[in-house]
Design a protein around this nucleic acid. Structure first.
Lengths: 348, 348
DNA sequence: CTTGCATCTGACAACGTTGTCCAGGTTCTA
DNA sequence: TAGAACCTGGACAACGTTGTCAGATGCAAG
């Protein structure tokens, strides 16, 4: 009666009131720390006491609150993955690979899609940092990552994948976009093509630039002057890419072959080409499912998304284990897979 | 000198020592709570004070520790997603849809793959509960989810997707596997087939059973007795499925059409059929990319993975917003997409 | 110049866990 | 049988934040 509602109380009537170690301790008739010991498998508890505690845990449905644990211990055993779009088939295996490595290290994976928007990337990354993830694997959308400096200084391990970080020095794992594109285009040239189109992603994106550079290098190596209208960079939605494809294939001097800058582009180009009678050669960057069953099969420059993810995650955990190597740039090779579309001779 | 290491100290020399609100307060020459107010945009702070605090925040690179916040507030603003395999193209869009809804509600997504292993599912789910996620979206691998009872009782919102929960009563969002399969098989029958094979996932999996049931129903509706060797359930790896396909197509009375129980199966069957001269009709459950460009195009019973995820996530947040409807079973319709392979007449 | 009121600020406890340290009890040895 | 060594269990503080409440400050009115 005398003591009323002046004691600071939990803000909301919390959803369910979960039992705490204190509750377990009270029920088992032991001290708080003893419960902690049992829960964490620490030594120094008699079998009999342990049994009593375990019974109380089961009876109450107790589950340790990792938020509190994290607060006390300073490590969250979780890592963040920021990618472009979880729904893109390229990122599925990558994401899965990161997850597997995390799992092997007892960590959970928190992930989010930036939708290729630099602001959203930053927002996500900072939200993850606020959660105090131990480390970050980032497929950057933006080109300025100085906002990460305080985080990295504070000990957040960070590895970039697929594209390098902007304006900061950090680990990065990527595929050899330049070399892959150059090889792919050289392959087309070797099959007699001279008028070759390049359709890629937005020039803001590092891989798009690198692949275009590879295209130019191959053309230059072969002594073929490149026409402006053979190159098209921009969003990879079907409309834009479809239009670009048709433009290149129209006109008085159409291209006889196309190099597609990524999986999304390749799919759309294949669709357009399927509607033509005249054969047009095609090599795409990134492998795509069922590419072997199309007629002709789609020749691609394949990169190993899972390997990218695995490598990045492993490097991340090496950082977390205390390795303090200088930031490194790891480049994985690509592989040309011939399936038919890239071996078509020039028509017309 | 006099005071030595008797004060309880943080266990490890923490990775980076991040500044706390206390540090910011000291630097700005204000009280702790004032910093909290600024950080959270609460009213009652003079512009001048706010500026000083903001400067200190920027100077120190302070970032609020959400772990501590969570501990105090009781909500984590994060939800867990447990699916079978992030790398499976079916789950990418689903996962992305869940993420979008979570984002709209200001929550982060933690996800993990169960690899179709019930134990791993449970392990993951409980780890997520220990993190005190506010809610769970689960694509179940196991068939007994009683282990979730204490969690649900404690207020963890839970929605199952793609397959119902086992032995507990919970919300579930799924596609009409039975109806979809029945329609698909009926479609084959309508095109004159009578000897139709069914290749599906392991019988442990709910959707596999439902689709088989749909197959049987369609056959029965048409008065066609089903032979044992026309049905094959099991793992969906290429070896097993390839073998099953070849078995059905061999022998004296081979099937003239195949119904494939999911996207993985369809892809493998397409590969096998591509190696044959004789045409075999095919309808697959789940749409697959490029299915329209194959010759013939692959007829499928499509389900909308993104819609599944969206619906589930929305239902989850409705639970979190306090709705206490009885657990519901939401079934989304499927759609038959005719592309050629399902319209082939029986050969032989 | 005092009073009253509104506004701003800070001290403090609490969230649930774990590390430290000490008390009490048991077992073994001399 | 006393003392030492050991083992088990528990009290307590601290992690970084936020809600409560009371104190401080400033200003207008009496």
């Amino acid at each position: 009666m005398a003591e009323t509602a002046s004691r600071p109380e939990r803000p909301e009537p919390r959803y369910g009131n979960r039992p705490t170690m204190k509750d377990v301790a009270a029920r088992a008739g032991v001290g708080l720390k003893t419960v902690s010991r049992v829960v964490n498998g620490e030594p120094g508890v008699t079998p009999d006491t342990e049994r009593r505690v375990q019974e109380a845990i089961d009876a109450l449905g107790f589950r340790r609150n990792d938020s509190a644990r994290v607060l006390r211990k300073g490590r969250t055993a979780s890592i963040g993955l920021v990618l472009e779009d979880l729904a893109d088939p390229f990122y599925g295996p990558l994401s899965r690979a990161v997850e597997e490595v995390a799992r092997a290290h007892g960590a959970l994976l928190i992930n989010g899609s930036s939708a290729e928007d630099p602001e959203r990337e930053q927002e996500l990354v900072l939200a993850l940092c606020a959660r105090r993830v131990d480390g970050l694997v980032v497929i950057p959308a933006g080109d300025d990552h100085r906002y990460l400096e305080p985080e990295i200084a504070a000990g957040v391990a960070t590895v970039f994948v697929d594209r390098p970080a902007g304006k900061i020095d950090a680990d990065v794992v990527l595929s050899d976009s330049f070399g892959g594109a150059r090889d792919g285009v050289a392959h087309l040239i070797a099959h007699g093509h001279r008028r070759i189109g390049f359709i890629g992603d937005q020039p803001r994106i590092h891989t798009a630039i690198e692949r275009l550079r590879g295209y130019r290098a191959a053309m230059e190596d072969a002594g073929i002057p490149v026409e402006e209208e053979w190159m098209s960079l921009g969003p990879t939605d079907p409309d834009r890419v479809g239009q670009a494809t048709e433009t290149m294939l129209g006109g008085p001097e159409p291209v006889t072959a196309i190099f597609a800058g990524n999986n999304r582009v390749t799919v759309t180009v294949v669709r357009v080409l399927a509607g033509l009678t005249r054969p047009v050669a095609l090599v795409g960057f990134d492998d795509i499912e069922l590419a072997d069953l199309l007629k002709p099969g789609v020749t691609v420059v394949a990169q190993d998304a899972a390997q990218l993810g695995r490598t990045a995650a492993e490097r991340l955990f090496r950082q977390l284990d205390g390795a303090s190597d200088a930031p490194e740039r790891i480049e994985l090779p690509t592989r040309l897979i011939k399936r038919g579309s890239g071996e078509l001779p020039p028509a017309g």
